[in-house]
Computed example of a mutant assay.
Amino acid sequence: MLVVEGTLDPDWASPQADGEAIVAALPPGPGHLEMIPGAGHYPHVQFPAQVVTVIQSFLHSVRA
């Protein structure tokens, strides 16, 4: 599972810590956190090209 968080997400006191907690709560496997610098709660809207790159990289890594 890929978790994508914006570093400036105002919904969390610490977006990094929140994302890490989500990944830690997952069953063992390909859980991965990616932080998008400068993004808020909607990184896929604010930085779509960067999010697509992150998704493609993750898919390639779990396919390998």
Rank of each mutant, 00 (worst) to 15 (best):
D9C: 06
V45P: 05
D9A: 05
P28L: 13
R63G: 07
H44L: 08
H44G: 07
I36Y: 02
G38H: 02
V23G: 07
Q50C: 01
P37G: 09
G31C: 10
A49N: 06
L26E: 05
L2P: 13
G29W: 02
A25Y: 04
D18P: 01
Q56R: 14
A21E: 15
H60Q: 10
W12D: 02
P30H: 13
P15M: 05
L59H: 11
V52Y: 08
R63I: 05
F47T: 02
F47A: 09
G31L: 06
A17Y: 03
V3G: 10
D11C: 11
I36W: 01
P30Q: 13
D18V: 00
P15H: 09
D18S: 06
L8Y: 11
Q46A: 15
L26G: 11
V45N: 13
A24I: 00
V62G: 03
P10A: 12
V62R: 05
I22F: 03
P37I: 08
D9V: 04
V23N: 05
L8E: 11
A24T: 01
L33K: 11
V54W: 00
Q50P: 00
L59E: 08
V62M: 09
V54S: 03
H44E: 08
A17P: 02
I22Q: 06
V4D: 06
T53I: 01
I36H: 04
M35A: 07
P48A: 02
P15V: 05
Y42I: 10
V23F: 05
Y42S: 15
G29E: 09
A13P: 13
A21K: 10
S57V: 03
S61G: 08
F58K: 03
G19P: 00
F58A: 01
H60W: 07
F58S: 01
G40Y: 14
P27L: 06
M1K: 13
V3E: 10
E34H: 14
V3N: 13
L8P: 01
L2Y: 14
P27I: 03
I22P: 00
V4L: 15
I22W: 02
T53V: 06
L59D: 10
P43Q: 14
P48R: 04
S57G: 14
P43F: 15
V62K: 06
H41A: 10
S57M: 02
P15A: 09
Q50T: 11
P48E: 04
P48C: 04
Q50F: 03
I55H: 05
T53D: 10
P30Y: 08
M1L: 15
P30V: 05
A64Q: 12
M1P: 14
W12L: 05
S61M: 09
V54T: 07
D18A: 06
L2A: 11
V3Q: 13
L2F: 11
A21H: 04
V52I: 08
Q46D: 12
V52W: 10
W12I: 01
L26M: 15
V54Y: 00
T53G: 07
V52M: 08
A64R: 11
G40L: 08
Y42T: 12
G40A: 15
G19F: 00
L33E: 09
P48Y: 01
